[in-house]
Amino acid sequence: MLTNVYFVRHAHSTYTPDEVGRPLSVKGLADAERISEVLAKENIDIIIASPYKRAIQSVEPLGVKLEKEVILEAGFKERTLSLEPVENFTQAITRVWENPAFSLPGGESNHVAQNCGIMAIGNVLESYEGKNIAIGTHGNIMVLIMNHFDKKFDFNFWKNLDMPDIYKLTFENKNLLDVKRIWDSTR
């Protein structure tokens, strides 16, 4: 029995230091409507989101359109890079990807963050086998999960993601069979 997971990297957000409450920008809200149009054609059975506002807002229009509740799952939240703001984000994110066991003070290493994401996707695959599941999430944790199944999904892949972006992962049990990008950022 095949299970399809549609990872939705959240749309553009308005930067605030509040990671949990950071909202989508005006462009992000418009893109969330486009996300709902794309995913409404995919026979979505279940909608899940990270508890972060920007991830929820990215799939809420789909929930409204399909009259489905958005289930919150902390395992799909963005990884904590550091407890303190980092001076050079590019340098910090490069370092954690170069050394998967490294973490900044109060932050999560790639290993720790990936393990959290793998537990969450494992639970989803067990609970909703044979379903089509949309998951509103974040770029780093999404790629860390994908990387667990196929190492080609790496730091360079992450750097080339759009905001938003959608990837359809097809599983048989917990075995990844196929990955397709279904978001067209030029639309």
Score class of each variant (00 low, 15 high):
P164R: 00
A49D: 03
V96G: 11
Q91G: 06
N4F: 09
T170K: 06
V96F: 10
M163G: 01
D45T: 04
F171R: 00
H10C: 03
G75Q: 02
S109K: 11
G122C: 00
H148T: 08
R9H: 06
K174D: 12
F76I: 11
P61C: 02
D165E: 00
L125H: 07
T16A: 05
L39F: 02
K174M: 09
E126F: 12
L104N: 12
H148Q: 11
M142L: 07
P85F: 10
A49W: 04
E78N: 09
E126A: 14
I71Q: 09
M146K: 00
S50L: 01
E37N: 15
H111M: 14
M1I: 03
E84Y: 12
V179Y: 09
E37Y: 13
I145A: 03
H111T: 15
E108T: 09
F76E: 08
N156H: 13
E33W: 07
N110V: 13
Y6M: 05
I44A: 08
L104Q: 11
I135V: 14
F89P: 11
K27L: 07
L144G: 07
S82L: 06
L72V: 04
L169M: 13
E37G: 12
I47R: 04
V143E: 01
F155I: 01
K53M: 03
I145S: 05
T14F: 00
I166F: 06
E60R: 03
S58V: 02
S50T: 00
L125K: 05
I48C: 02
K41F: 10
Q91M: 11
A40I: 00
L39W: 04
G130F: 11
T80N: 15
F155R: 05
T14Q: 00
I93F: 15
D165C: 01
W97S: 13
H111W: 15
M1G: 08
G139Y: 01
I93R: 15
L169F: 09
F7M: 02
P51Q: 02
S36C: 04
E73N: 13
M163Q: 12
R79Q: 14
F157E: 03
E67A: 14
V143W: 01
H148A: 12
I141D: 05
Q91N: 11
N147L: 02
N110M: 12
K27I: 06
I118H: 11
Y52E: 04
I133K: 02
T3H: 09
K180I: 02
V20E: 12
Q114P: 09
D18N: 11
L66W: 04
T94W: 09
I135P: 06
A101F: 14
N123T: 14
A74D: 14
I71M: 09
P61H: 03
